[in-house]
Design a protein around this nucleic acid. Structure first.
Lengths: 212, 212
DNA sequence: CCTAAAGAGGACTTTAAGGTCCGTAAATGG
DNA sequence: CCATTTACGGACCTTAAAGTCCTCTTTAGG
């Protein structure tokens, strides 16, 4: 009896309703990613999702709520992707594989659009304090995946004992975000490649063996 | 006779008019920096600059034109600042001084707001192709200052012959932009420091002597 | 099958932001 | 000192986007 999906407001939700809500969220997330949050109107979302005004307001009290859900779902996606690639990280080679996969994703659309999370952060961080904190937490979690990986590498002897997993993780995060922004502005994925190579080289400087 | 300042539209401009125009541009640039371009209304600009609607439209045909002028003036400021610090760059120590100055600027407001140029780039790059190209050019010029510095260092023997000035410059740019974004999101200048240290370490890896 | 609740469409209202215009004040220059 | 241009304030208009509401349709569950 309690297996019925429910709205945020507590109203029951049928399968059909859940699907509509998902279409709205997906369309909003896509639009806000490629054109920015402010430049995305609810009418755009309505059209792209093939729904109507009443449905938007049935599922979300206002645009802010939709926006928050977009941030949450994007963060979940990004973290999930990174988790897949990083939970078993234990060598510089593994790091390279992760970087290659990331660079490939960026190259898919010629560098455009920036980071799914970073572009939201840049637009919203100084706009809405609650969202800023939320985004900061998501970034921290992402960075935590890298830090944990580096810690494992160090403990396993792949990195020297004096390697600082936290600093390496922060540096790599900065390289990723910077690479995204340069690629987005230049409409060229090359800077991402260069930035990642720099950060990985920096990690490699702390490698114990000659793990190429 | 031709020493009279002139409007973009060709109309003459008195000293008073020029001052008003400057107040408008300054107010718009500040507001667009801290709250974003889309979130800045012309009414905000009007209030902050202590002018009126008619003055805004006397000096700029529309909001887009004002926005473009903001981008241009911000870029000029950023490039001027970097030029000051980088034209004579010839050692890793000099690079450190530049990085220290940059980190200090970021720390002044606790990391908030991001890069004066980067935050505009992130918001506008996928919005207006002309502006994207303009911003890409400005970034390239900034990067060029670094590249030229590295080339000088290499030619002077401070960097090894196999050092790639272009790649080092791109890497450093990414670290700067990534550092800005992380600092902005976390409201903490520390990530910028870490990112700059990483990039400088990467440069130092190509140092010929033991230039600490 | 019947009914109550969920889902859907879309017209309508409100609001806020961009943009126009006009009357007045100040400066310029002859 | 007068005429012309520039500077200014702010009322007004227009538009586009957010948000409301009413009616009809579909679906779940007895």
């Amino acid at each position: 009896m309690a297996d019925q999906a429910r709205d945020s407001g507590g109203a029951r939700l049928t399968e059909r309703g859940r699907a509509t809500r998902e279409r709205i969220l997906k369309a909003a997330a896509d639009l806000m990613y490629v054109r920015g949050v402010a430049a995305t109107t609810l009418d755009d979302v309505r059209t792209a999702s093939g729904t109507s005004k009443s449905q938007l307001y049935r599922h979300y009290p206002d645009k802010d709520a939709l926006m928050r859900d977009v941030v949450g779902s994007r963060a979940a996606e990004v973290l999930e992707w990174n988790r897949q690639h990083l939970t078993r990280l234990k060598s510089v080679r593994g790091l390279r594989r992760w970087a290659d996969a990331l660079a490939e994703r960026v190259a898919l659309h010629g560098g455009a659009y920036g980071c799914p999370l970073g572009s939201l952060a840049s637009e919203l961080a100084d706009q809405d304090e609650e969202l800023r904190v939320s985004l900061a937490r998501h970034f921290a979690e992402w960075e935590g995946l890298l830090r944990a990986g580096f810690a494992r590498m160090r403990d396993a002897g792949a990195l020297r004992p004096d390697a600082d997993p936290a600093a390496l993780a922060t540096g790599l995060m900065a390289a990723v975000q910077g690479g995204y922004l340069l690629a987005q502005t230049a409409h060229d994925p090359a800077p991402m490649r260069v930035a990642l190579d720099m950060a990985i080289d920096h990690v490699r400087a702390y490698a114990a063996g000659k793990d190429c």
